[in-house]
Amino acid sequence: MKITLRKTLSIIKKIVIGFMLVSVFLILLMRWVNPFCSMLMVERKIAHWNISQQRTWKDWDQISDNIKIAVIAAEDQNFADHWGFDFKAINRALIYNQKNRKIRGASTITQQVAKNIFLWSSRSWIRKGVESWFTVWIEVIWSKQRTLEIYLNSVEWGEGIFGIEAASRHYFNVSANQLTPYQASLLAATLPNPRKWSPANPDDKIQKKAEWIRGQMSNLGGKNYLKQLN
C-alpha cells in the first residue's frame, strides 16, 4: 500500500502532538505524585543488570537544608531566579569550550531533572531540544521547591546509588535529614562525576571543591536562601 507524503506528515503530526500531551500530563502528575524511578535508573539497570540499585524517597521536610543549599551552591546558584535556563552560564560555557578541549556544561538543576527523570543521557541536539521542552513545562507547573525535591531524590551518587537518602546512608551512615554542612559539601562536590569520586574518601580536588562550596553556601545566605523556593 502506497503511503502518500500527506499521510506521512499527518502521522508524524499525531505522534508529535501525542508526545506533547503525554509529557505535559506526566509533569502535571508529578507535581503531586513522586516518580517511582527515573529514566537514568532504567538506563543504568539495562547497562548493568548485576548491580543492585539503592533508592529511598524522602520528602522535602525529611531532607537536611544543608544538602539543599550545597547542591544549589555547587550546581546552580541562580536556581531561585531563572526560568530553567541560565543564559549567562551558557554563554560562559560556550566561551570556555571554544578555548579548551574539555567540555564544560551549563545545565541548571531544572534541566538535570528533565534529563534524569524523562530522557536518555547521550549528548545530541535532538535530546537537548526535547530536554528544553520538559524544562520549560517543569518551570511552569512545578514550584522550585518541588523541582529541588525531585532532583535530590533522583540524582546519581555512585554505582547503583540514587537519591540523597541512599547516598547519605551509603557514604556517612546517617539519614538525609542528619547531614552536616561538611558532609553535604562533599556530596555536592562529587556530582560532576559521582561514579568516579567518593564523598567518603575524597581526594585533594574534592576536598578543595567542597571547601569552596561551603564558602558559596555562606555567600548565598545559607538556609535563608531556601525561603525563595516556596
Rank of each mutant, 00 (worst) to 15 (best):
A176L: 13
A176R: 05
A176T: 15
A176C: 14
A176F: 04
N177V: 08
N177G: 02
Q178I: 05
Q178D: 08
L179W: 03
L179I: 05
T180L: 10
P181V: 03
Y182M: 08
Y182V: 12
Y182R: 11
Q183M: 08
A184F: 00
S185D: 11
S185C: 09
L187N: 10
L187W: 09
L187H: 08
A189N: 15
T190N: 15
T190I: 08
T190F: 15
N193I: 04
N193D: 10
N193Q: 13
P194F: 05
P194M: 12
P194T: 15
R195T: 09
K196Q: 06
S198P: 01
P199W: 00
P199L: 00
P199Y: 00
A200C: 08
N201A: 15
N201K: 09
P202Q: 01
D203F: 00
K205R: 12
K205Y: 13
I206A: 13
I206C: 11
Q207S: 06
K209W: 10
K209T: 05
K209D: 12
K209C: 09
A210H: 02
E211H: 08
E211Y: 12
W212C: 01
R214T: 02
R214L: 07
R214W: 02
G215Q: 15
G215V: 07
G215R: 11
G215Y: 04
Q216A: 10
Q216V: 06
M217N: 04
M217T: 03
M217R: 03
N219F: 14
L220R: 07
G221P: 05
K223N: 06
